[in-house]
């Protein structure tokens, strides 16, 4: 199974991100906005990878009132994106990987999986039931790490977006 966001296949037609914004945390204060200013989306419709991690590109827009805001928004979004990506990959690959190993072992290591642990209980059965039991713990720990790593970042992005919309409305 391939994951679309792995970007295994380099695409020469598109500008590639020079740095992956892993581990960035939202430490930015919110920038106030004067009333009556029109929102500028410049720097936003371009290729997305150039928005963050390359500060030099944003200098031409520095005189525009919203360029900085857009930049911050992009950085928040990038942090959220990478947090989600880490969470998704770790949890999915763990779940899928352990299951594939289990099925392959069941098929090709029948003697190992048929080994009796206690009484009639074979290793294969025990592992199968163990996976079901571990599922409860996995779901619990997914929820906990999502609350820790993703939710605060998502809140920042949401608030900033709400701020932008409010700015437009004014």
């Amino acid at each position: 199974m391939t994951y679309p966001d792995d970007r295994r296949y380099p695409q020469p037609d598109w500008p590639q991100p020079s740095t992956e914004p892993y581990g960035r945390t939202p430490g930015y204060g919110s920038y106030g906005r004067g009333p009556g200013q029109e929102p500028s989306r410049s720097g936003y419709d371009d290729s997305p990878h150039d928005r963050y991690g390359q500060a030099a590109r944003h200098e031409p827009y520095a005189h525009q009132p919203y360029a900085h805001e857009t930049h911050r928004h992009g950085a928040d979004l990038a942090a959220l994106r990478s947090a989600y990506r880490v969470l998704r990959r770790v949890s999915t690959l763990t779940a899928l990987g352990s299951f594939v190993v289990y099925v392959v072992l069941s098929c090709y290591a029948t003697e190992l999986m048929g080994a009796r642990i206690t009484g009639e209980l074979s290793l294969g059965m025990a592992l199968g039931i163990l996976q079901l039991v571990v599922t409860f713990a996995a779901v619990f720990s997914y929820g906990r790490s999502a609350r820790r790593s993703v939710d605060p970042l998502a809140r920042v992005v949401r608030e900033r977006a709400a701020g932008r919309t409010a700015g437009v409305a004014r």
């Binding site: 979004l77 992005v157 709400a162």
Partner: peptide, 8 residues
């Protein structure tokens, strides 16, 4: 932003 954070 909407996809990841439900921001409108």
């Amino acid at each position: 932003a909407r996809l990841l954070a439900a921001a409108e």
